[in-house]
C-alpha cells in the first residue's frame, strides 16, 4: 500500500511540466526515503534525477519499496486537472497495475479521482559518483532561463566558462557570435538575486542549448539554479524544491574531436 499526501500539490504539477518533454516514460521509485525518479532522454544525452523526501509529505505511507512505471505525458495531463492550490494524494496498491491521483480543493468542496494505468518499463538505474566539482555557480533561475532562450534563438550550442571574472556563456554561429558574462554579485539583501561562484579551477565546456532550454522548464520550482561543472563530467543543473528535495539535470558535454 502506498499513500502520499502532498499539501502543496502545485509542486508535483511543476515537476511534471519540467520533465515531460525530456523523458517519455519513467519509473517512479517509492521508498522510506521518498518519492524519486531517475531517467534519461531517449538519446542518452541527458539524465534527470528527482527526489521528493518523505518528510516533505503531510502523510507518507509506503509499506514496501515500489517502482511504478508511468507515461509522463499522460501523468502531466492528469495533474493539469488539479488546481494550483489543491492537495494531491498519490495512491497505489502493492502489485496493482494502476495509480490513483486524488485532488482536494483547499476548502474540501471538490474531490477528484484520476486513475492511470501503470506500465512495465525496463529502466537502467545509473550510479552517479559523488564528485568535487571544479566550479559551482549559483544564479537566479530566471536569469539562466533568459540566457538559454536568447542564445538558442541564434545558435544551437553554448560554451559555458567559469573563471574568477564570472560565468561566461558564449556562442558562435553563421550569423555572428555572442558573449554574456554574469559577474559574481553577492547580494546580502536579496540572496535569491545573487550570482555566487565557487571555483577550484577554471572550467569551460560546450553543450547543446536544446537540452539546457528544456531544463529551464523547472524554473517555476525555484528562484535560484545551481550549475556544477568539472572538465571531465556532465554538467549538473539543479533546482531545489522547497524543503522537499531537488530536481537535477545532468547533461553530457560536447567533446572536441
Amino acid at each position: 500500500m502506498l499513500e502520499l499526501r502532498l499539501v502543496q500539490g502545485s509542486l508535483l504539477k511543476k515537476v511534471l511540466e519540467s520533465i515531460k518533454d525530456l523523458v517519455t516514460d519513467a519509473n517512479f521509485d517509492c521508498s522510506a526515503t521518498g518519492f524519486s525518479l531517475q531517467a534519461m532522454d531517449s538519446s542518452h544525452v541527458a539524465l534527470v534525477s528527482l527526489l521528493l523526501r518523505s518528510e516533505g509529505f503531510e502523510h507518507y505511507r509506503c509499506d514496501r519499496n515500489m517502482s511504478m512505471g508511468m507515461n509522463l505525458n499522460n501523468m502531466a495531463k492528469m495533474l493539469k486537472c488539479a488546481g494550483n492550490d489543491d492537495i494531491i494524494t498519490i495512491k497505489a496498491d502493492d502489485g496493482g497495475d494502476t495509480v490513483t491521483f486524488m485532488f482536494e480543493s483547499p476548502n474540501q468542496d471538490k474531490i477528484s479521482d484520476f486513475e492511470m494505468k501503470l506500465m512495465d518499463i525496463d529502466s537502467e538505474h545509473l550510479g552517479i559518483p559523488e564528485s568535487e566539482y571544479h566550479a559551482i555557480v549559483r544564479m537566479p533561475s530566471q536569469e539562466f532561463a533568459r540566457i538559454c532562450k536568447d542564445l538558442s534563438s541564434i545558435v544551437d550550442t553554448v560554451v559555458i566558462s567559469v573563471s574568477k571574472e564570472g560565468v561566461k556563456f558564449s556562442t558562435r554561429g553563421d550569423i555572428g557570435s555572442a558573449n554574456i558574462v554574469c559577474r559574481q554579485n553577492p547580494s546580502v539583501d536579496k540572496p535569491d538575486e545573487a550570482t555566487i561562484i565557487e571555483m577550484q579551477e577554471p572550467v569551460s565546456l560546450t553543450f547543446a542549448l536544446r537540452y539546457m532550454n528544456s531544463f529551464t522548464k523547472a524554473t517555476p520550482l525555484s528562484n535560484t539554479v545551481t550549475i556544477s561543472m568539472s572538465s571531465e563530467l556532465p554538467v549538473v543543473v539543479e533546482y531545489k524544491i522547497a524543503d522537499m528535495g531537488y530536481i537535477r539535470f545532468y547533461l553530457a558535454p560536447k567533446i572536441e574531436e
Partner: peptide
C-alpha cells in the same frame, strides 16, 4: 569539430 557526449560513457549501470 565536436561530437555530442553520452551519459552512459560517464555514469555506469548500478
Amino acid at each position: 569539430d565536436t561530437r555530442q557526449g553520452n551519459i552512459l560513457s560517464f555514469f555506469k549501470k548500478s
